[in-house]
Amino acid sequence: MLNCYQFKHFISRYLDEEISFKDRHAFEEHQQTCPICQTLLTNIRRNREALQNLPSIGVSENFMFNLRNRILADRNARLQRALHQGFSLSKVPSFAYGFAVALLAVVVGFVILQSQSANEPSYLPPPVVQQKINQPRPSPAEPARNLPSPPARQYTSTQSQTVPTDTVSETAPEPANHYQDNFQDKIRTVKDQR
């Protein structure tokens, strides 16, 4: 069985029918034995009914008209504000500042790297090429390798193309001399190997 304190705790649940069967039984049992709690329950029930029966208060007739005016006024005020204020730093979102700083850091870093690479000598070939260059040349004592012999026809043709200097025109193509130089080098190499 409930005491008066517990009874008070269950009043609203009892009125709203949100009480379990067991608690309802105990509640009603106490209600029958305690006239003070019974009066309290009756009063609260009556208050609840009075609240539910309170007349509904509606909005005035020109409510919608006033509301439309307020919406229009608010819209105009926003437009005016936007037109008059123009650009201000306060409107820039905070993440934009972060982005700008990051971009600046990237640009500065790029410029620094560029200046450093400009100070270094740029005529040095890459390390792989340098290694090839530094390799010792084969000595003449070593046995001759199976080097591919230069094409005979080309060799002879190159040899036979001895053009007198006076007949060489000034507009003679440069690659011809270059071709001859290359073959001269090759001839020297083959002779060294022998």
Partner: peptide
């Protein structure tokens, strides 16, 4: 909310 409604009703009765 449940307990607040209950206490509010008891409080209202006391006020009345």
């Amino acid at each position: 909310v449940k307990s607040r409604i209950n206490r509010a009703r008891i409080h209202l009765q006391a006020e009345l």
